[in-house]
Nucleic acid binder design. Structure first.
Lengths: 249, 249
DNA sequence: CAAACTTGTCTATTGATATAGACAACTATA
DNA sequence: TATAGTTGTCTATATCAATAGACAAGTTTG
């Protein structure tokens, strides 16, 4: 055994305040089961010692998480973890919003926030195999499960082939159903590129996040079974509420 | 057209300092090509106006990125973007560290940081299909490409079946080669679960990151072609240097 | 050389962040 | 009903983060 202990301390002068870092740590500890759901957190003094900060700093972190609805503090009793497991969103050959979350939520749907027709930029044109400047339809959507926003996506389609998909989408609340109505019975996920960043202002608003939250970002291309690109999309998932489960493509 | 503009502003009182948020935005703008590599950034005054903050705040952000080696500032001339594209790490059925980055880097290898034998915890036992408490070998590794750290992984193996893998790993510098030497000629990626969080202190040190950096986290199980679990691992990738490309499983 | 434009440095002020200590308010339990 | 253990509130102080303005130092261009 070579030996080596997993440090888990705190960074000062990092541009990220200590209370925010500790809030993240508590969230992480909850998600790994270190702090059990519906049970009491260690007392504030113990947390302060554990993380090497002042009790008041821990209190700031807890206050933020209470605000976010993750914890509930009760004077004299303790601070309790509310149950809110991260959903596991499957990504594979047949990635579909609604079916993928079956069994984890009782309800889910997609809301169309906005749509427009615009010329394809470099990235979109490449993804859809069009020449730059071709007209494309852009859909801005939010995915919700049990009333909580869990995804925020921007999708582009060839405007000629999928004319009117914005109206159909608003009606059906489903990409799959909309494509089906426009003659695409089946489609496959061709590629998915994954990254992560801090949520920007519009993410914060649309996903109901607190500043400093992290979003997982996927950039994907869907194709027909014979390989023709039909949809290019960028989706943002709040990392605190969703994990992505990669399955067979 | 319903209309809707993508806001891209800044969050105050978030626990994340403005200079850190702006540094992230600049990084993002570079990665999307908004700020071209090897070209000058807009002048500080323009950036300050663009992001709605004071010039000194922008300067703090730039100072951090200069420290990280992303930018170079020259008095009187401007501030320049150094070229450093994100690597694209493929994840699929045959995910292998070395082969996946061929063509993107001239050199890559894995360093064994530490190893130990320990009883399997809940998560590891589940992943490997063992009973809790069974002895497992834990390997702590760092992946490097062209001299820059790009991954930090913890891998667990059944200690009985893969006795001595730590020594073989230290020798060969390759998981695939080590498994091969212990009788596993082929293996497949069975599952991958993906999340993201802020880098903790050990990530910062091992991956040579600045505080506040984001890491992509994958938790994966590798199995033999007949489905027997052989490796359970958690890998951390610096989001600023790596994106994950999901390919056919 | 002069003017315009850029980054670098300095001083000053304000508000947010973090630490420290003391004590109040509330709960559970011996 | 004490007592111990917990969260809540208050005051005080020091440092970091952000804004503001002025000017120095360097580069480019007319």
């Amino acid at each position: 055994m070579i030996g080596r202990q997993g440090v888990d301390s705190i960074e000062r002068r990092s541009g990220v305040s200590l209370w925010r870092q500790i809030a993240d740590k508590i969230l992480h500890a909850i998600s790994t089961g270190d702090f059990a759901e519906n049970a009491a957190l260690p007392p504030e003094i113990a947390l302060a010692e554990r993380y090497g900060v002042n009790r008041h700093t821990v209190r700031s972190a807890i206050a933020a998480l209470v605000q976010e609805g993750v914890l509930r503090a009760e004077q004299g009793r303790g601070t309790f973890v509310l149950s809110r497991k991260r959903l596991s969103y499957p990504i594979g050959a047949r990635t579909r919003f609604s079916t993928g979350l079956q069994g984890q939520t009782s309800e889910r749907h997609i809301v169309l926030l906005a749509s427009s027709i615009e010329p394809a930029g470099q990235r979109v044109a490449e993804g859809l195999g069009l020449t730059r400047g071709t007209e494309v339809i852009r859909l801005e959507t939010r995915g919700e499960a049990d009333g909580r926003p869990i995804s925020r996506a921007t999708a582009w389609f060839d405007a000629r082939r999928f004319a009117g998909i914005d109206r159909v989408m608003a009606e059906t609340g489903s990409i799959t159903a909309s494509l089906s109505r426009l003659g695409v019975d089946d489609y496959l996920r061709q590629s998915t590129v994954l990254s992560a960043r801090h949520a920007d202002a519009s993410d914060l608003a649309d996903l109901d996040l607190q500043p400093g939250a992290i979003v997982l970002v996927t950039v994907a291309v869907n194709v027909t079974p014979d390989g023709q690109p039909i949809q290019f999309s960028e989706s943002r998932f709040p990392a605190e509420r969703i994990e992505l489960k990669l399955s067979a493509l």
